Simulated scan of single mutants.
Amino acid sequence: MNPYLKRAYELQEEITENRRYIHSHAGVGFDLDDTVERIMSQLRAMGIEGERCGKAGVVVTLGKPGKTILLRGDIDALPIPEQTNLPFASKNGCMHACGHDFHAAMLLGAAKLLKENESALPGTVKLMFQPAEEKLAGARDMVENGVLENPHVDAAFAMHIGTGNSESPVGSVKFTKGPSHASGDSFRIIVQGKGCHGASSYQGVDAISVAAHILIALEEIPAREVPADQLSIVTVGVFQGGSACNIIADTATLEGTIRALSPENREFLIRRVREVAESIAKAFRATIRVEEPTGGTPPSYNNPALCEEMLPFIKEIVPEDKVFVRENQPSLGSEDFAYVSTKVPSMMINLGAGSTEEGYTYALHSPFVTPDEGCLPVGAALYAHCATRWLEENQ
């Protein structure tokens, strides 16, 4: 057995305890005081001094001068009331329903593995404990606060657990080369019409009707204006308007998300959402205000050369029959690891934490999801081993 993997299994109880503590003290966005304190205290117990980076990030630097590889684990939860009935369930209205408690615990496990072998590292490993992934804001905050510099990062590696589908058996790995995750941008459109009595609708401008025409038109943009082989989505998830059944509504609100796999399509879709909404509103004698977020994230990209380089290292930890390489099968989910992958050669893998065939029927973001903790030592070993092997091959 690989030495890192063997040691990770010896540390399984400790890694699991960290996961459960972080899970039961879930925080959202940058509001992660309990989580950050746990990470810092565990690092100190290992003889490691973590450094704060940005609003709530933590950075660890290990090894010696030379090439530098970054390992990223996100640490924030979702504003979802937990319904798992686990003995360590969160009770504060927030839940680690996306598995970031796993990522944080595995990266802590990797920190210990790497610290125990620090003298043999042929370069530098940076550990990036990142907040606010769910808000698509934490990676950008840490990049802007220097996480990729001093020393400069030459390559980056991240992972995300998966469960509740047929492709996530415990301890398996899958990834796709090239575009891996879509961009993510949200929008809010406020339609201003003119209210009147429903019996005299000709005297008003029906904001609900205008918003309905906008909704249909927006969701047709990807189908009619983007090539079919360039996956993209415009989705409206919120539609609000009206106050009574016999009143023509004077205002209505649409909120939605835009996903694209290239910077060019991202820019095109953001522009077309505004243009289409404004044109339809004008045609129906309404006005609109389009609010776009200051955040969002570009598409995330798995560097093909780095994927090829990392693949044999992954197979030294995970049996070959549990490693699945995908070609041109990106996710239209978004990942703010993109703020790293647009700067340095990067790779993100998916670590299996329970398939439907193994009895895990709830997917991530469900209030009932309970990923399998058996993947924790595998993830910790993958982090540490892939970093070490990459440094060995890139001295």
Rank of each mutant, 00 (worst) to 15 (best):
N265F: 03
E134Y: 06
I190K: 14
D74V: 09
H365C: 13
S334M: 04
M347R: 02
A158L: 05
A260P: 15
A89M: 07
A158W: 01
E37L: 12
N145W: 02
H103R: 04
E291P: 00
V60I: 00
L231P: 09
L311G: 11
A105D: 12
K64Y: 03
D33G: 04
T251G: 01
M142A: 01
L306C: 05
Y202V: 13
K282S: 13
C245S: 09
Q203G: 08
P81C: 14
G162Q: 07
M128H: 13
K177W: 00
V236S: 10
G198V: 03
H25M: 07
I208R: 03
E335N: 07
S279E: 13
G195V: 04
V234W: 08
F187W: 09
A277E: 07
A8K: 03
P3N: 08
E13I: 02
R389I: 05
P65N: 02
K115Y: 06
R52Y: 11
A286T: 08
L11Y: 11
M106T: 11
R266E: 12
A89W: 04
V290N: 10
M142Q: 05
K315L: 01
L311V: 11
A338N: 03
K194N: 01
A182G: 00
V210R: 08
A105T: 04
I247F: 03
E316Y: 02
G123V: 12
D372L: 11
L376I: 08
K91F: 00
G123D: 08
V60Q: 01
M348S: 13
E358R: 05
V60T: 02
Q192I: 00
I15C: 04
R289Y: 07
F187L: 12
I48E: 08
G204Y: 06
V340L: 14
N2Y: 05
R271N: 12
G237V: 08
P371L: 04
V340I: 15
P227M: 13
I233E: 12
R52A: 14
V205Y: 00
G241H: 06
S24N: 08
V173D: 06
R326I: 09
G374C: 04
F337G: 11
G63R: 07
P131G: 12
L391G: 09
P3L: 06
M46I: 01
V143E: 11
A338M: 01
A381G: 06
E134K: 07
H25C: 09
E275L: 09
I349R: 05
D206G: 03
S366C: 11
E220K: 15
A212P: 01
E357N: 14
N246R: 00
T176L: 05
V58E: 13
A137L: 13
R285K: 14
R72N: 06
A110H: 12
R271G: 00
T257I: 09
P65E: 08
V210A: 08
H181C: 15
G123E: 10
E291G: 05
G193S: 04
S331C: 02
P65W: 01
V323I: 06
S90E: 05
A286Q: 09
K135S: 14
V369M: 00
M348W: 03
I214A: 05
D321L: 03
N92K: 12
A104R: 10
A244F: 03
V191I: 15
R52T: 15
R38L: 09
Q83K: 14
